[in-house]
Simulated assay, not measured.
Amino acid sequence: MHKVLIIGAGGVGSVVVHKCAAQPDVFSEITLASRTCEKCIEIAESVRKRTGQKIRIEKVDADSVDELIGLISKTNPSIVINTALPYQDLTIMEACLRTGVSYLDTANYEPPEEAKFEYSWQWAYQEQFTEKGLTAILGCGFDPGVTNLFCAYARDKIFDTIEYIDIVDCNAGDHGHPFATNFNPEINIREITQKGKYWENGEWKYIEPLSESMIIDFPEVGEKKAYLLYHEEEESLVKNIPGLKRIRFWMTFSDEYLTHLRVLRNVGMTGIEPVEFEGHKIIPLKFLKELLPDPSSLSEGYTGKTSIGCIIEGLKDGKRIKKMIYNVCEHEKAHNEVGAQAVSYTTGVPAALGAEMFLRGIWNKPGVWNVEQFDPVPFLEKLGERGLPWKITDL
């Protein structure tokens, strides 16, 4: 029986709270903390109605190490699950380190002043977490997260050598809004508008944003045009999949979405440099975020599916084989179960399960780790039970 502290009350945080509450034999006491308590109260009420479990609520500024230390000391959790903004990863890790508590997140640190998705800042904590006997689990969402574990499973159980990986992500859902993002608009738009990047033959290669695309046949969804982006799981998988010759990441966008994004970018609304407006400094992208629907509000009436997985090619017993490992998730089912859309659901379920793996002593080793550095089998054995069944198909 363990206490858990969840920081961040957005769409993903809500899913994590619901899924932890559904495992009272693992999570004996759940505290949810955020800068504002209103969302926490809504989530706690939803959990109470669905499971009968009581959720404790606390207020915290996750940019303040001192406030975080006070909160962690007060709640005394076995692990902190970070579903706040990626800007706050380092303050939460620092507070965990100082209070002697283990850590898990779903996305890597992102410096506010620059779109630079990389793990270097968090990997730098390796020695300190090791010395304190604490575990930090990085990127335990879906992508990064489950996709890393699909690759690790292929590495350990299917292939002798993996040479090529394409991580493919399709949201074929319809939320009914002319333009909205399925997770934090700042992070989502920064991710899409930065240069594309992929690993090939021992080096990183760069392309202009959204300049390369291909048609991919997504399971249960069909053929969709997907665009090459950079995604942070590539950085760790390059280190942890030996023999890799190339890894790329592809994501689908509707034509309507891309038209809106192009116009917003052309008029400067996606910028992250401050501009002066009527005597105030504002960041255009932060202002745009306030105008767009909250991702956690999209689930009502959301139809369609997500289809996300890994296309993996390599050698087994001297023969070339190609497999796809994937999950399909329905927006409507996710909403009916926990009141969330499938993008939040597919990120939140693995975070709760990753914390369970730690608390059960399966993923418990001192240091800072990406999920593919743990045994993928116990996690993947539970993933279907927790709501994300997965399949392997020959290509």
Rank of each mutant, 00 (worst) to 15 (best):
K3A: 15
I7A: 01
S14K: 06
V16Q: 03
H18R: 02
K19N: 09
C20R: 00
S28H: 12
I30E: 04
A33W: 02
K39Q: 13
K59Y: 09
K59R: 14
V65S: 06
G70D: 15
V80K: 01
T91N: 14
P112W: 04
K116H: 12
Q126F: 11
T130Y: 13
L138W: 04
V146Y: 01
N148R: 12
L149T: 03
T161F: 05
I165T: 04
I167F: 04
D169S: 11
H177K: 15
Q194R: 13
N201G: 11
N201F: 07
I207W: 01
L210F: 08
L210Q: 05
E212M: 11
P219C: 08
A226C: 14
L229G: 05
E234R: 00
W250E: 01
S254G: 14
R265V: 06
P274I: 07
E276V: 13
I283K: 03
P284R: 02
K286S: 14
D294N: 14
C310E: 15
I312E: 06
G314N: 06
L315F: 12
R320N: 15
I325T: 09
C329Q: 10
E330H: 06
H331I: 05
T347G: 08
L359H: 04
P366V: 04
W369L: 02
N370R: 06
K382V: 09
L395H: 10
